[in-house]
Write a protein that binds this DNA or RNA. Structure first.
Length: 923
RNA sequence: GCGCAUGUGGCGUAAUUGGUAGCCGCGCCAGACUUAGGAUCUGGUUCCGUAAGGAGUGGGGGUUCGAGUCCCUUCAUGCGCACCA
């Protein structure tokens, strides 16, 4: 009988659907296991072969866990809000929902063809009001919370109000945008409006004036992770810094917990490191510098407190609020001119120019340790967003300060013994201190690290500053001036103060608009909506939430997707808890994976979820790149020359559709039919074939290298696609899509199939399996079990091939062996396994079978081969009965006829016997 | 510049975790069958050498009886962060 994969796969996919094979319910009698894929954004191009790589891996794991007796939650859904649908809508006027739904349906079809075991009853879409109700709900909770630094958790904002009413800011240690200080009396006489303004400084979701990444081309602000090297990640448009009033999430309050939590999760070290970098903890000191002749005090942050004796000037960021306070009248014109220049430079230009620029403010500050007066400059090499936006400059030991000092001819005082600062600064934190002692503080002779500690101690005692930890992690900017996103559950009162809606009013549904562009007055698209007002008639927020809003808690919703009363019920949350295995790409390292952890921790603080970390184990699948093919046209002709002969001609390489190339050999007829201009093409062949060149490039339409899974499924079947994607190499590795090996995998399935049949008859019998067959099977069970647990799927596929070859070679026909083999294969190739399961006469779905366990007794060798080496060089091998003592193995090795030549009459100095491996004889 | 990975045949990769390097697959070579095919099956395939033998896991050095694996150093590639004070 032929292996008819088309028939088999269609039949079983239908069966699974009809029998709800993959439906999952809470079952307290069984242990749970939660396997999650990062849900896709349904783009118009459909799924390509890169997408399923991670999905297949997680599907195999889900099926394996189910066979092992776990109650496995394995859902799928769509991250449906996004820029491409919106931009398509702007161009065509078509509502983004229409394109989104169309794309989702396409994705769904494509996914089903690959045979995933998703429980589709739990599907979620972030653009569904029933879903985003809970995104809005979480926002309201964040608005109504503040972060208590002493308790290290989020608390209701009412608690803070109580504290203010009784003690003012005294004793309040809360995360805030700006350090405030007032008494209870001062608080109590404030107007409601003023109180609201104060509270906004503490809310976890707050409206704040912050420096934002503004992308004029996209017409929206972007979060830090959506900007890279001064341009937008999507589209690559320039991004500028702009002060705007925007909704923000106080993610920075969670910096330390986000950092600490990394130690408790099973993620790759590199991903954790990426997050640590992004959070960017640095320990240092905040120091106060008085401005001479004024009451103004400048706070600066430094990690090099030890270099205080080498501070020869100070620098403020151009955006610093102190700039206007410090500028003296005679310097005002110059400073304003400089500020104006800086303002018109985008961040990108600043980065590219890397030219030293700056201006003297006219003011002098007093070094709190030496008492010396030093000039205060303004320069854009100091960032407004980090630390306090002001620095103490130590040109001898900081390369940026050095460049600045050289440019403005400022003094450079070396502080470390032997450091040559005539050409460049000495930035390393090592060496002995010099020039660093006075009556207040003596650092000379100390090591840099000791000096840092001593200076910090002094700063505290002398009251000139404090020890401080700084984080690079910024609050997340949460407003987007777009249409296709979650509306904020926020309205504005007559004083333009924001208020959140009541939870009962959720979901606040996205309104219809006539166009998806900003209004003529520059308001976001929601400004076009009619009656965009709250129940009380007040105007609603016009911005929508960013893409990461909907993806931050979606894993919780899958646990209880139809619940209208809660994001997730207590029961569901306590049963499913968190994601045991999360599979997805590294590109979300500093976006989604930070925001989700933050969101989860926030809900954890409020008691809505029971686990502090959302994703226990995370596996990063690599990207699948495109493998483009080229043909070589001889210039000014319609003749194409084969790859290895192209050097003899003057040729132009042309991308050719990879779908008409097989194993780098061009299908000439299909090529002629591909484009009218090639209809009369002529070819110069090598060995009768036209061989194409290739290159590894991004998978894209323009390079004709996009391979979509449907084509592979059509040609080889889903099981071959699944096995082949796994066979390609380790799952976490990026690799080009290359069909060169797919035939081998397909051949394996055909060979397996043919083992079952002789002609059209089942050739398997109920006979007892031979010892050899049992050994082959149990080797496989052991290997595959180990491999799945370690996500080493490529070696599993190899193991299956070896086993099938062995069973074929020994002509094993025992049903019991094949039954176990089919169960082992089921996670990898579910369709053929279901079919063979029934061919073997079993009932029900193979999904409900039991994972076989291996028995060591079949794996014991009767005889063992030892390699015998002399002084580490292998010379011959011996075969001895298994279980021999070391001494007997030694004897056997020495008495072997081949040994004499190497021993040559000498007495061995030492003999090392490695069990089942090697006998090494040292002469 | 800092940090993290990775480097093995013509190609994708494997190596029981310090124990005979190259499993499995692709490709290639030879053969069988054949209705001549992009089907199937069998055997071979790291390199040099007719062979005996020798070399060999990016390069150099080290530890060890023994190193793809551990240590030092260097080169190359990929990724992350980057005027972060």
């Amino acid at each position: 009988m032929e292996y008819n994969f088309k028939d088999i796969e269609q039949r079983w996919q239908k069966y699974w659907k009809e029998h709800n094979t993959y439906k999952v319910e809470i079952d307290e009698s069984r242990p749970k296991y939660y396997v999650l894929d990062m849900f896709p954004y349904p783009s118009g191009a459909g799924l390509h072969v890169g997408h399923p790589l991670g999905y297949i891996a997680s599907d195999i794991y889900s099926r394996y866990k189910r066979l092992c007796g776990y109650n496995v939650l394995h859902p799928m859904g769509y991250d449906a809000y996004g820029l491409p649908a919106e931009q398509y809508a702007i161009q065509t006027g078509q509502h983004p929902e229409i394109t989104t739904v169309r794309n989702i349906n396409r994705y769904h079809d494509q996914l089903d063809k690959i045979g995933f075991c998703y429980d589709w009853d739990r599907e979620i879409r972030t653009c569904d009001p029933k879903y985003y109700k809970w995104t809005q709900w979480a926002f309201i909770k964040m608005f109504n919370s503040y972060y208590d630094n002493d308790l290290q958790r989020a608390c209701p904002i009412e608690k803070l109000v109580e504290k203010f009413a009784s003690n003012g800011t005294d004793g309040v240690n809360a995360a805030c945008s700006e350090q405030l200080s007032f008494t209870a009396d001062e608080w109590n006489v404030k107007s409601d409006n003023d109180k609201e303004n104060v509270l906004m400084n503490y809310r976890i979701a707050y409206l704040g004036n912050t420096m934002v990444n503004w992308c004029p081309k996209l017409g929206t602000v972007l979060a830090n992770d959506e900007v890279s090297e001064g341009v937008s990640v999507r589209g690559g448009y320039p991004v500028e810094q702009k002060m705007m009033r925007q909704w923000c999430l106080r993610v920075s309050a969670y910096s330390q917990r986000l950092l600490d939590g990394l130690d408790s999760v099973d993620w790759t070290e590199s991903l954790k490191e990426t997050q640590r970098n992004w959070i960017g903890r640095s320990e240092g000191a905040e120091m106060k510098f008085k401005v001479a002749g004024t009451d103004i005090v400048l706070d600066i942050f430094t990690t090099r407190a030890d270099t205080i004796f080498g501070v020869t000037f100070m620098v403020l960021a151009p955006e610093s609020e102190y700039v206007s306070l410090l500028v003296t009248d005679d310097r005002r014109a110059d400073v304003e001119k400089y500020l104006d220049e800086v303002k018109h430079k985008t961040e990108r230009e600043r980065l590219i120019e890397k030219q030293v620029s700056g201006v003297f403010s006219g003011s002098y500050a007093i070094n709190p340790v030496t008492g010396k007066e030093i000039p205060v400059y303004i320069s854009d090499y100091v960032l407004a967003g980090y630390g306090t936006g002001a620095i103490m400059a130590v040109p001898a030991h900081d390369s940026r300060d050095y460049a600045f000092a050289r440019h403005f001819d400022l003094p450079i005082i070396p502080l470390i013994e032997g450091a040559d600062v005539s050409e460049e600064s000495f930035d390393a934190k090592e060496g002995k201190m010099i020039n660093s002692s006075n009556e207040n503080l003596q650092l000379d002779g100390l090591d840099v690290k000791e000096a840092i500690a001593k200076t910090k101690e002094y700063i505290k005692q002398a009251g000139i500053g404090r020890v401080k930890v700084n984080y690079r992690l910024r609050d997340a900017i949460f407003s987007r001036q777009r249409y296709w996103g979650e509306p904020f559950p926020v309205y504005y009162d007559e004083h333009n103060m924001p208020h959140v809606l009541d939870e009962e009013e959720l979901p606040l549904e996205l309104p219809e608009v006539d166009k998806f562009l900003p209004t003529e007055t520059g308001e976001p698209p929601l400004g076009r909506a009619k009656n965009w007002v709250a129940k009380n008639g007040r105007p609603l927020e016009l911005c929508t939430m960013p893409g990461f809003a909907g993806s931050s808690a979606y894993y919780l919703r899958y646990m209880d997707p139809h619940n209208d009363n809660a994001l997730v019920s207590k029961q569901a949350d306590e049963y499913w808890r968190n994601v045991d295995l999360y599979v997805g790409g590294t590109e979300h390292a500093t976006g989604h994976l930070i925001y989700s952890r933050f969101w989860n921790k926030f809900l954890y603080d409020l008691g809505y979820v029971c686990e502090p970390e959302p994703f226990k184990k995370l596996v990063n699948q690599g990207m699948i790149q495109g493998r483009s093919n080229f043909v070589y046209r001889i210039k000014d002709t319609n003749t194409f020359v084969s790859y290895n002969l192209r050097k003899e001609y003057d040729v132009t390489p042309i991308h050719v559709d990879v779908n008409i190339v097989n194993n780098d050999v061009l299908d000439l007829d299909k090529f002629k039919a591909w484009r009218p201009e090639y209809a009369n093409a002529e070819f110069i062949l090598e060995n009768g074939k036209y061989v194409c060149g290739y290159a590894i490039e991004k998978m894209s339409k323009s390079m004709y290298n996009v391979v979509n899974p449907d084509d592979i499924v059509e040609r080889y079947g889903a099981d071959t696609l699944r096995l082949y994607e796994m066979f390609l190499g380790p799952i976490e590795q990026s690799k080009p899509w290359d069909t060169n090996g797919i035939d081998g995998v397909h051949r394996f399935l055909k060979r397996l199939w043919s083992l079952f049949f002789k002609g059209d008859e089942l050739q398997l019998t109920d006979t007892e399996p031979s010892a050899e067959a049992m050994k082959s099977l149990h080797k496989l069970i052991k290997k595959v079990t180990f491999d799945i647990e370690h996500f080493s799927y490529n070696t599993s596929v190899s193991a299956f091939m070896i086993c099938v070859n062995e069973l074929n070679a020994i002509k094993c026909t025992s049903k019991s062996v094949y039954k176990d083999l089919v169960v082992l294969l089921a996670p990898f190739a579910p369709h053929i396994s279901e079919e063979l399961w029934h061919v073997l006469g079993e009932e029900g779905s193979v999904c409900d079978a039991k994972w076989p366990e291996y028995d060591e007794k079949y794996l014991v060798e009767s005889s063992v081969k030892y390699a015998v080496s002399f002084n580490g060089k292998t010379r011959f091998s011996i075969e001895v009965p298994a279980g021999m003592s070391k001494e007997d193995v030694e004897k056997a090795a020495l008495s072997d006829a081949a040994a004499e030549k190497w021993i040559a009459g000498k007495t061995p100095k030492k003999i090392i016997v490695v069990p089942n491996k090697i006998v090494n004889i040292v002469i």
